[in-house]
């Protein structure tokens, strides 16, 4: 995209953005720093530099603790549960939402508005209001503390979001693309697969990332609907305990927080390339 911003304005914008970057980066860096501190350094500011910020002697003790040490029983399974639950719910949600959004954007059928409003209405309700009834229901039908027991509420959480983002995206793809494909000899399915799907890919990836984050960061469902067999990382963190009851598990929690952030960062970096805006430019006179 071309901009007509002069160099002077660019410099000022750059300067102005520094405080914002610092504002967002400091808490993350603090978590990283804390995860590298030894138990002693956590309580004693003289062992740290930059005013209690960075430890003089970095240690990976906290990471050892969560992966191989005392907290590993809690953390490692939780990490696996997180990965499986989030990936499965993202994939299902994106696939369902793609078809649904395509239908909403392209077809004229009765109840189209209803679907969109219901999808939106689902996300009106505060999550916490749904948890208690779900807890009772899940217990009775045997979904409590199972992976599907988490995947289903996550789908409910991510589907409306995905449907809305994707239908907005599909609506931007010119109708003619598809009609041209049909005239060229494609079936509806071929037109969708060979023309619409590649064009919608950036939107699908964006939606996938949003859906994944929503599930990955969820605490309420996970802490209430699971106990041991399906607990995800955000909920597991709450159950961390220190070496003794007088010791806070701060370091371990921070180490775990760093670990769960890594997939998210990787995901964004991976898909960043695919989220190329303006892919449709050139389809029509631009």
């Amino acid at each position: 995209m071309e901009t007509n911003v002069s160099d002077k304005v660019k410099t000022w914008l750059g300067v102005a953005s520094i405080p914002i970057m610092v504002w967002t980066a400091i808490p993350l860096l603090w978590i990283l720093a804390t995860s590298l501190k030894s138990t002693a350094a956590l309580a004693d500011s003289t062992q740290n530099i930059l005013g209690n910020f960075w430890p003089k002697h970095m240690t990976l003790d906290n990471y050892r603790l969560i992966f191989t040490g005392g907290a590993s029983d809690l953390f490692v399974p939780a990490l696996w549960h997180s990965i499986v639950v989030c990936l499965v719910s993202t994939v299902i949600s994106v696939i369902l939402a793609t078809f649904c959004a395509y239908a909403i954007a392209r077809l004229d059928f009765p109840g189209k508005g209803v679907i969109l409003t219901t999808a939106l209405a689902v996300s009106f309700f505060p999550v916490i209001a749904m948890v208690t009834p779900l807890f009772n229901l899940w217990r009775q039908i045997g979904l409590f503390d199972t992976l599907p027991g988490l995947i289903i509420p996550y789908l409910a959480l991510t589907l409306p979001l995905s449907i809305w983002t994707l239908s907005a995206f599909f609506q931007q793809i010119p109708w003619e693309m598809e009609q041209a494909a049909q005239v060229d000899g494609a079936t509806s399915w071929q037109a969708f697969r060979k023309v619409i799907a590649p064009l919608a890919a950036p939107g699908v990836f964006t939606t996938a990332i949003i859906a994944f984050f929503t599930a990955w960061n969820d605490f309420v469902f996970s802490s209430n609907l699971t106990s041991e067999n399906a607990r995800t990382v955000p909920a597991a963190l709450a159950y961390f305990t220190g070496a003794s009851q007088f010791e806070q598990p701060t370091g371990a929690i921070c180490a775990a927080a760093v670990i769960v952030t890594i997939p998210v960062v990787i995901l964004v970096l991976l898909f960043q390339r695919r989220i190329v805006s303006g892919l449709t430019s050139g389809a029509v006179k631009g």
């Binding site: 049909q182 590649p198 892919l279």
Partner: peptide
């Protein structure tokens, strides 16, 4: 008949080229 079975070729006003 569906468009693909009519064996006609069409040029659209905005060309409708496949951008990818």
């Amino acid at each position: 008949l569906a468009p693909r079975d009519r064996h006609l070729a069409m040029v659209f006003q905005n060309y409708a080229l496949y951008p990818h």
